[in-house]
Design a protein around this nucleic acid. Sequence first.
DNA 1: TTTAGTATTGCAACTTTATTGCATTTCTTT
DNA 2: AAAGAAATGCAATAAAGTTGCAATACTAAA
Lengths: 146, 146
Amino acid sequence: MCQHCDYAQILEAANLNLTTNRLKILEIIGNNRSPLSAKEIYDTLSRNKDINRVTVYRILDLLVKKGIINRLTSGERTFHYGMAPNKNHPAHPHFYCKHCGAIECLNPEALHIEMESLKKTYPGVIENVEIRVDGICKNCLKKSRQ
Amino acid sequence: MCQHCDYAQILEAANLNLTTNRLKILEIIGNNRSPLSAKEIYDTLSRNKDINRVTVYRILDLLVKKGIINRLTSGERTFHYGMAPNKNHPAHPHFYCKHCGAIECLNPEALHIEMESLKKTYPGVIENVEIRVDGICKNCLKKSRQ
DNA sequence: TTTAGTATTGCAACTTTATTGCATTTCTTT
DNA sequence: AAAGAAATGCAATAAAGTTGCAATACTAAA
């Protein structure tokens, strides 16, 4: 549960009309401790409200386009969505467990990455860096030892 | 074109029977300067030989499982395959162009990343780190300026 | 060399995830 | 209240990858 983000204000600041669906989706993403798939978001929403899958996809696309959320790749074929870096949510790497598929946010300081030289020398535009650490998570490791 | 890798030997070292398909696929991947999608590999193979899509997928899965090649995520929904780090192919980040979809290998030294502290403190097993830089490549930038 | 067993490949059907086109509903603004 | 724009729903489609099973090819023992 993020205490700091005013989601309605974030939407307004991006010039988006404030709709229930947009707000709900943004809250679900912002309040979750790890990035969620479209299906997870849809399922969560569906528990309380009748909403179409396509609407969820469209809102996610919109929020990504506006730079409010980030579309992350897991080691699987599904995208996951988390808050884009902002003043309350610093950029951070993710851990993907090959065994159970869980995605976990790592500490922003978990690994230090030096980007400045690339930004200076790269002949195109750099917008985003995604760092994903793959392996076996603590829980799965424990289970496999039993 | 990699002058240094003996692909047949790589397969043998992994205890895999040497089949034409496996060798061809490994050569296609190893000799390309950027990671390829399954479809690209299949299309390349198909030009000279009758082969089934599924066979390509199965061989790719096998080579990934054996750690010979890496399965990389682009910003899209398709996986790309490149040589796993070995003595001729050092680990390196990739650049993904949001505009044209091209994936480009960056210099292994392009950005320095400090992993040691994470490896020491992370409670699971770390097998691999994937770094993807997203943005607009040089070519697309040039076009958009015209 | 034959034969049994194993490994590899092909084919068709299917699954999952996401996207598109178009109709309908809802909202906004005058 | 009405017109126009924005948001949503529904059905169909697309793209990428996977599965089950049959057919073929390879390997190794008798």
